[in-house]
Protein backbone atom coordinates (compact mmCIF):
# COMPACT_ATOMS: atom_id res chain seq x y z
CA UNK A 1 0.00 0.00 0.00
CA UNK A 2 2.94 2.34 0.58
CA UNK A 3 3.87 2.83 -3.05
CA UNK A 4 1.01 2.93 -5.43
CA UNK A 5 1.67 2.61 -9.13
CA UNK A 6 0.69 5.14 -11.69
CA UNK A 7 -2.68 4.73 -13.40
CA UNK A 8 -0.87 3.55 -16.51
CA UNK A 9 -0.94 0.08 -15.00
CA UNK A 10 -4.62 0.10 -15.87
CA UNK A 11 -3.72 -0.77 -19.42
CA UNK A 12 -2.77 -4.21 -18.20
CA UNK A 13 -6.25 -4.70 -16.78
CA UNK A 14 -7.49 -5.55 -20.25
CA UNK A 15 -8.74 -9.12 -20.74
CA UNK A 16 -6.01 -11.65 -21.54
CA UNK A 17 -5.18 -12.15 -25.18
CA UNK A 18 -6.74 -15.12 -26.85
CA UNK A 19 -5.07 -17.65 -29.06
CA UNK A 20 -1.88 -18.26 -27.09
CA UNK A 21 -0.41 -21.42 -28.45
CA UNK A 22 0.91 -22.97 -25.25
CA UNK A 23 -0.47 -22.69 -21.72
CA UNK A 24 1.85 -21.19 -19.09
CA UNK A 25 4.28 -23.62 -17.41
CA UNK A 26 2.29 -23.81 -14.18
CA UNK A 27 -0.77 -24.90 -16.11
CA UNK A 28 1.31 -27.40 -18.08
CA UNK A 29 2.52 -28.78 -14.78
CA UNK A 30 -1.08 -29.02 -13.59
CA UNK A 31 -2.17 -30.82 -16.73
CA UNK A 32 0.73 -33.25 -16.49
CA UNK A 33 0.11 -33.98 -12.84
CA UNK A 34 -3.59 -34.49 -13.43
CA UNK A 35 -2.91 -36.78 -16.37
CA UNK A 36 -0.54 -38.80 -14.18
CA UNK A 37 -3.20 -39.06 -11.48
CA UNK A 38 -5.73 -40.24 -14.05
CA UNK A 39 -3.35 -42.88 -15.35
CA UNK A 40 -2.69 -44.06 -11.79
CA UNK A 41 -6.40 -44.15 -10.99
CA UNK A 42 -7.28 -46.06 -14.14
CA UNK A 43 -4.35 -48.45 -13.97
CA UNK A 44 -4.33 -48.95 -10.20
CA UNK A 45 -4.58 -52.71 -10.45
CA UNK A 46 -1.65 -52.90 -12.87
CA UNK A 47 0.56 -50.31 -11.20
CA UNK A 48 0.18 -51.26 -7.59
CA UNK A 49 3.02 -53.47 -6.34
CA UNK A 50 0.81 -55.10 -3.68
CA UNK A 51 -2.80 -55.27 -2.68
CA UNK A 52 -3.60 -52.28 -0.50
CA UNK A 53 -4.63 -54.58 2.33
CA UNK A 54 -1.66 -56.96 2.03
CA UNK A 55 0.34 -57.21 5.25
CA UNK A 56 4.10 -57.54 5.48
CA UNK A 57 4.52 -58.08 9.20
CA UNK A 58 8.29 -58.32 9.06
CA UNK A 59 8.57 -54.84 7.55
CA UNK A 60 6.30 -52.82 9.80
CA UNK A 61 6.80 -49.03 9.91
CA UNK A 62 9.56 -49.37 7.37
CA UNK A 63 10.70 -45.91 6.13
CA UNK A 64 10.66 -45.00 2.43
CA UNK A 65 13.58 -46.13 0.28
CA UNK A 66 15.19 -42.67 0.20
CA UNK A 67 15.05 -42.48 3.99
CA UNK A 68 16.99 -45.67 4.48
CA UNK A 69 14.21 -48.13 3.94
CA UNK A 70 13.98 -51.06 1.59
CA UNK A 71 13.16 -50.90 -2.12
CA UNK A 72 10.57 -53.60 -1.49
CA UNK A 73 8.42 -50.74 -0.18
CA UNK A 74 9.54 -47.59 -2.00
CA UNK A 75 7.31 -45.29 0.07
CA UNK A 76 7.56 -47.31 3.27
CA UNK A 77 4.96 -49.25 5.19
CA UNK A 78 2.49 -48.54 7.97
CA UNK A 79 2.29 -50.20 11.36
CA UNK A 80 0.65 -53.32 9.91
CA UNK A 81 3.28 -53.56 7.21
CA UNK A 82 0.91 -52.41 4.47
CA UNK A 83 2.69 -50.81 1.55
CA UNK A 84 2.19 -47.03 1.54
CA UNK A 85 2.62 -46.80 -2.23
CA UNK A 86 -0.06 -49.42 -2.87
CA UNK A 87 -2.41 -47.67 -0.46
CA UNK A 88 -1.61 -44.33 -2.06
CA UNK A 89 -2.42 -45.65 -5.53
CA UNK A 90 -5.78 -47.03 -4.44
CA UNK A 91 -6.49 -43.89 -2.42
CA UNK A 92 -5.91 -41.76 -5.50
CA UNK A 93 -8.35 -43.93 -7.39
CA UNK A 94 -10.95 -43.65 -4.64
CA UNK A 95 -10.60 -39.90 -4.14
CA UNK A 96 -10.70 -39.14 -7.86
CA UNK A 97 -13.68 -41.43 -8.37
CA UNK A 98 -15.59 -39.67 -5.61
CA UNK A 99 -14.60 -36.23 -6.81
CA UNK A 100 -15.56 -36.91 -10.44
CA UNK A 101 -18.82 -38.55 -9.46
CA UNK A 102 -19.77 -35.78 -7.07
CA UNK A 103 -18.79 -32.98 -9.47
CA UNK A 104 -20.93 -34.45 -12.22
CA UNK A 105 -23.88 -35.05 -9.92
CA UNK A 106 -23.68 -31.47 -8.67
CA UNK A 107 -23.45 -30.04 -12.16
CA UNK A 108 -26.38 -32.10 -13.45
CA UNK A 109 -28.66 -31.36 -10.49
CA UNK A 110 -27.76 -27.70 -10.37
CA UNK A 111 -28.07 -27.10 -14.10
CA UNK A 112 -31.37 -28.96 -14.29
CA UNK A 113 -32.87 -26.98 -11.42
CA UNK A 114 -31.54 -23.76 -12.90
CA UNK A 115 -33.16 -24.55 -16.25
CA UNK A 116 -36.42 -25.50 -14.55
CA UNK A 117 -36.42 -22.19 -12.70
CA UNK A 118 -35.70 -20.29 -15.90
CA UNK A 119 -38.32 -22.19 -17.89
CA UNK A 120 -41.27 -22.13 -15.53
CA UNK A 121 -40.47 -18.95 -13.57
CA UNK A 122 -43.10 -18.13 -10.95
CA UNK A 123 -43.54 -20.64 -8.17
CA UNK A 124 -40.93 -23.15 -9.39
CA UNK A 125 -38.35 -20.41 -9.57
CA UNK A 126 -39.17 -19.23 -6.05
CA UNK A 127 -38.78 -22.79 -4.72
CA UNK A 128 -35.42 -23.19 -6.42
CA UNK A 129 -34.24 -19.83 -5.13
CA UNK A 130 -35.37 -20.74 -1.61
CA UNK A 131 -33.37 -23.96 -1.86
CA UNK A 132 -30.38 -21.95 -3.05
CA UNK A 133 -30.73 -19.69 0.00
CA UNK A 134 -30.99 -22.72 2.21
CA UNK A 135 -27.76 -24.23 0.87
CA UNK A 136 -26.00 -20.94 1.20
CA UNK A 137 -27.09 -20.62 4.82
CA UNK A 138 -25.30 -23.71 6.09
CA UNK A 139 -21.62 -24.46 5.86
CA UNK A 140 -21.53 -27.58 3.74
CA UNK A 141 -19.32 -29.47 6.18
CA UNK A 142 -21.91 -29.14 8.97
CA UNK A 143 -24.68 -30.25 6.65
CA UNK A 144 -22.66 -33.22 5.43
CA UNK A 145 -21.72 -34.21 8.96
CA UNK A 146 -25.32 -34.29 10.15
CA UNK A 147 -26.56 -36.23 7.14
CA UNK A 148 -23.71 -38.75 7.27
CA UNK A 149 -24.04 -39.33 10.97
CA UNK A 150 -27.71 -40.08 10.83
CA UNK A 151 -28.03 -41.97 7.59
CA UNK A 152 -25.02 -44.06 8.40
CA UNK A 153 -22.25 -44.23 5.90
CA UNK A 154 -22.40 -45.88 2.53
CA UNK A 155 -20.30 -45.07 -0.49
CA UNK A 156 -23.30 -44.20 -2.66
CA UNK A 157 -24.73 -41.84 -0.06
CA UNK A 158 -21.34 -40.25 0.47
CA UNK A 159 -20.86 -39.51 -3.24
CA UNK A 160 -24.41 -38.20 -3.62
CA UNK A 161 -23.97 -36.02 -0.56
CA UNK A 162 -20.77 -34.50 -1.90
CA UNK A 163 -22.60 -34.09 -5.20
CA UNK A 164 -24.89 -31.63 -3.45
CA UNK A 165 -21.91 -29.40 -2.79
CA UNK A 166 -21.95 -26.38 -5.07
CA UNK A 167 -25.17 -27.41 -6.84
CA UNK A 168 -26.55 -23.98 -6.02
CA UNK A 169 -23.73 -22.34 -7.93
CA UNK A 170 -24.63 -24.21 -11.12
CA UNK A 171 -28.31 -23.53 -10.49
CA UNK A 172 -27.68 -19.81 -10.15
CA UNK A 173 -25.50 -19.67 -13.26
CA UNK A 174 -27.77 -21.88 -15.37
CA UNK A 175 -30.86 -19.93 -14.36
CA UNK A 176 -29.30 -16.56 -15.09
CA UNK A 177 -27.81 -17.60 -18.40
CA UNK A 178 -30.92 -19.48 -19.53
CA UNK A 179 -33.08 -16.44 -18.81
CA UNK A 180 -30.81 -14.22 -20.83
CA UNK A 181 -30.60 -16.85 -23.57
CA UNK A 182 -34.39 -16.91 -23.68
CA UNK A 183 -34.32 -13.22 -24.46
CA UNK A 184 -31.91 -13.76 -27.34
CA UNK A 185 -32.94 -14.55 -30.85
CA UNK A 186 -31.75 -18.11 -31.20
CA UNK A 187 -33.78 -19.68 -28.38
CA UNK A 188 -36.91 -17.85 -29.45
CA UNK A 189 -36.32 -18.91 -33.04
CA UNK A 190 -36.13 -22.62 -32.22
CA UNK A 191 -39.16 -22.29 -29.99
CA UNK A 192 -41.08 -20.69 -32.83
CA UNK A 193 -40.05 -23.63 -35.01
CA UNK A 194 -41.84 -25.89 -32.55
CA UNK A 195 -38.91 -27.43 -30.69
CA UNK A 196 -39.70 -29.07 -27.38
CA UNK A 197 -38.24 -27.55 -24.18
CA UNK A 198 -35.91 -30.59 -23.98
CA UNK A 199 -34.53 -29.75 -27.38
CA UNK A 200 -34.25 -26.03 -26.71
CA UNK A 201 -32.36 -26.46 -23.46
CA UNK A 202 -30.40 -29.57 -24.35
CA UNK A 203 -29.32 -28.76 -27.89
CA UNK A 204 -29.30 -24.99 -27.99
CA UNK A 205 -29.02 -23.32 -24.59
CA UNK A 206 -26.71 -25.84 -22.91
CA UNK A 207 -23.97 -25.72 -25.55
CA UNK A 208 -24.02 -21.95 -25.39
CA UNK A 209 -23.48 -21.78 -21.65
CA UNK A 210 -21.31 -24.90 -21.38
CA UNK A 211 -18.03 -23.03 -21.09
CA UNK A 212 -19.20 -21.19 -17.99
CA UNK A 213 -20.46 -24.42 -16.45
CA UNK A 214 -17.22 -26.24 -17.21
CA UNK A 215 -15.26 -23.48 -15.52
CA UNK A 216 -17.49 -23.83 -12.47
CA UNK A 217 -16.84 -27.55 -12.47
CA UNK A 218 -13.09 -27.07 -12.46
CA UNK A 219 -13.55 -24.73 -9.50
CA UNK A 220 -15.82 -27.16 -7.62
CA UNK A 221 -13.67 -30.22 -8.25
CA UNK A 222 -10.78 -29.31 -5.90
CA UNK A 223 -13.28 -28.19 -3.27
CA UNK A 224 -14.88 -31.62 -3.40
CA UNK A 225 -11.50 -33.33 -3.07
CA UNK A 226 -10.83 -31.17 -0.01
CA UNK A 227 -14.26 -31.94 1.46
CA UNK A 228 -13.94 -35.65 0.87
CA UNK A 229 -10.49 -35.78 2.38
CA UNK A 230 -11.59 -33.63 5.32
CA UNK A 231 -14.55 -35.86 6.12
CA UNK A 232 -12.50 -39.00 5.63
CA UNK A 233 -9.81 -37.49 7.84
CA UNK A 234 -12.41 -37.08 10.60
CA UNK A 235 -13.25 -40.76 10.17
CA UNK A 236 -16.71 -39.90 8.81
CA UNK A 237 -16.10 -40.34 5.09
CA UNK A 238 -14.61 -43.33 3.34
CA UNK A 239 -14.61 -46.23 5.78
CA UNK A 240 -11.96 -48.92 6.18
CA UNK A 241 -10.99 -51.27 4.63
CA UNK A 242 -11.50 -48.87 1.70
CA UNK A 243 -8.99 -46.06 1.68
CA UNK A 244 -8.89 -42.52 0.37
CA UNK A 245 -6.32 -39.76 0.53
CA UNK A 246 -8.05 -38.14 3.49
CA UNK A 247 -8.48 -41.32 5.48
CA UNK A 248 -4.80 -42.12 4.91
CA UNK A 249 -3.87 -38.77 6.44
CA UNK A 250 -6.25 -39.29 9.34
CA UNK A 251 -4.84 -42.72 9.93
CA UNK A 252 -1.22 -41.63 9.55
CA UNK A 253 -1.77 -38.94 12.14
CA UNK A 254 -1.46 -41.57 14.87
CA UNK A 255 2.09 -42.20 13.68
CA UNK A 256 3.04 -38.58 13.11
CA UNK A 257 6.18 -38.79 15.24
CA UNK A 258 7.30 -42.31 14.44
CA UNK A 259 6.35 -42.69 10.80
CA UNK A 260 5.53 -39.31 9.22
CA UNK A 261 5.78 -40.80 5.71
CA UNK A 262 2.40 -42.53 6.11
CA UNK A 263 0.85 -39.08 6.32
CA UNK A 264 3.12 -37.04 4.09
CA UNK A 265 2.64 -39.06 0.90
CA UNK A 266 -1.15 -38.64 0.74
CA UNK A 267 -0.95 -35.08 2.08
CA UNK A 268 1.28 -33.93 -0.76
CA UNK A 269 -0.83 -35.81 -3.27
CA UNK A 270 -3.91 -33.91 -2.09
CA UNK A 271 -2.10 -30.60 -2.23
CA UNK A 272 -0.64 -31.15 -5.71
CA UNK A 273 -3.90 -32.45 -7.13
CA UNK A 274 -6.07 -29.61 -5.84
CA UNK A 275 -3.37 -27.14 -6.86
CA UNK A 276 -3.27 -28.57 -10.39
CA UNK A 277 -7.02 -28.43 -10.88
CA UNK A 278 -7.16 -24.91 -9.45
CA UNK A 279 -4.43 -23.70 -11.79
CA UNK A 280 -6.15 -25.28 -14.77
CA UNK A 281 -9.49 -23.87 -13.64
CA UNK A 282 -8.13 -20.35 -13.27
CA UNK A 283 -6.48 -20.56 -16.65
CA UNK A 284 -9.65 -21.86 -18.31
CA UNK A 285 -11.68 -19.16 -16.62
CA UNK A 286 -9.41 -16.44 -17.95
CA UNK A 287 -9.57 -17.90 -21.42
CA UNK A 288 -13.18 -18.97 -21.69
CA UNK A 289 -15.07 -16.67 -19.48
CA UNK A 290 -13.63 -13.33 -18.40
CA UNK A 291 -16.96 -12.36 -16.81
CA UNK A 292 -16.65 -14.98 -14.07
CA UNK A 293 -13.62 -13.38 -12.50
Amino acid sequence: MSDITAPTSLASAAPPKRGRSLPPPMVLFGLTWLAAMLVIALGADLLSPYSYTALDLRNRLSPPAFMGGTWLHPLGTDELGRDVMARLIYSIRMSLLIAFGATIIGAVIGTTLGFLAAHFRGFVEQVVLALVDFSASLPFLILALSVLAFFGNSMVLFICLLGLHAWERYARIARGLAISAGAQGYAAAVRQLGASPWRIYGRHVLPNIASTLIVSMTLAFPEIILLESGLSFLGLGVQPPATSLGSMVGYGREYLTRAPWILLAPAFTIILTTLSVSLIGDWLRDRLDPTLR
Binding site: P222, L226, S229, G230, F233, G246, V249, G250, R253, L256, T257, P260, L263, A267, I270, I271, T274, L275, S278, L279, D282
Partner: peptide, 22 residues
Amino acid sequence: AVAGFTVPSFVLGLLLVLVFAV
Protein backbone atom coordinates in the same frame (compact mmCIF):
# COMPACT_ATOMS: atom_id res chain seq x y z
CA ALA B 1 -3.28 -17.48 -2.14
CA VAL B 2 -3.60 -20.51 -4.39
CA ALA B 3 -1.34 -22.50 -2.08
CA GLY B 4 -3.35 -21.43 0.96
CA PHE B 5 -6.53 -22.45 -0.78
CA THR B 6 -5.32 -25.85 -1.93
CA VAL B 7 -3.66 -27.02 1.28
CA PRO B 8 -6.41 -28.56 3.39
CA SER B 9 -6.51 -27.26 6.95
CA PHE B 10 -5.85 -30.66 8.46
CA VAL B 11 -2.73 -31.10 6.35
CA LEU B 12 -1.48 -27.62 7.18
CA GLY B 13 -2.23 -28.22 10.86
CA LEU B 14 -0.41 -31.53 10.92
CA LEU B 15 2.55 -30.11 9.02
CA LEU B 16 2.79 -27.28 11.57
CA VAL B 17 2.64 -29.86 14.36
CA LEU B 18 5.34 -31.88 12.66
CA VAL B 19 7.63 -28.86 12.39
CA PHE B 20 6.91 -26.79 15.50
CA ALA B 21 5.85 -29.45 17.98
CA VAL B 22 7.64 -32.62 16.92
